[in-house]
């Protein structure tokens, strides 16, 4: 028999209750149980960055995080960073302006990573941005534009 546990998660400032098996990752909890599908599954192995979200303000990979682990912590996903009136977060706006994506599948992870990268103080130069955004693969090859978007958002921040 599989066991389920009850979890109460704090996601984007709201409380979400769910019953899941302990082995369910945060990524699967978001996508399959909570209809928060903005966080993407690219590899499910910690190798691509598409599933990046924030736990207690730090960027992490939700595919290698158990949902059970984040009970009592604050989770932020791509659905939770725009203003309440719908105005885009400056990083989101910069991504649109600089065409920092094509297919859009890596984009939520890139943006969550970029928001943290700026907050960490790792967006001081193009070279630093490239290195600190390298945990987010983009197969469409939007890297130049991602750097431009992060640079602009960092300058505004």
């Amino acid at each position: 028999m599989t066991r389920t546990i009850h979890l109460s998660l704090d996601i984007n400032g709201g409380r979400y209750d769910l019953d899941v098996e302990p082995r369910v990752t945060l990524l699967d909890a978001l996508r399959e149980h909570l209809a928060l599908t903005g966080t993407k599954k690219g590899c499910d192995q910690g190798q691509c960055g598409a599933c990046t979200c924030h736990v207690d303000g730090k960027r992490v990979l939700s595919c290698l995080t158990l949902a059970a682990q984040v009970e009592g912590r604050q989770v932020t996903t791509i659905e939770g960073i725009a203003a309440e009136n719908g105005e885009l977060h400056p990083v989101q706006a910069a991504f649109v302006e600089h065409d920092a994506f094509q297919c859009g599948y890596c984009t939520p992870g890139q943006i969550m990573s970029a928001v943290a990268c700026i907050r960490e103080g790792h967006a001081g130069s193009d070279e630093e941005i490239r290195e600190y955004m390298s945990g987010n693969l983009c197969r469409c090859g939007a890297y130049n534009n991602i750097v431009a978007a992060v640079r602009e958002a960092a300058e505004m921040a």
Partner: peptide
């Protein structure tokens, strides 16, 4: 690794 993995 990457910034995300280093945070974990």
């Amino acid at each position: 690794a990457s910034a995300q993995l280093r945070n974990m």
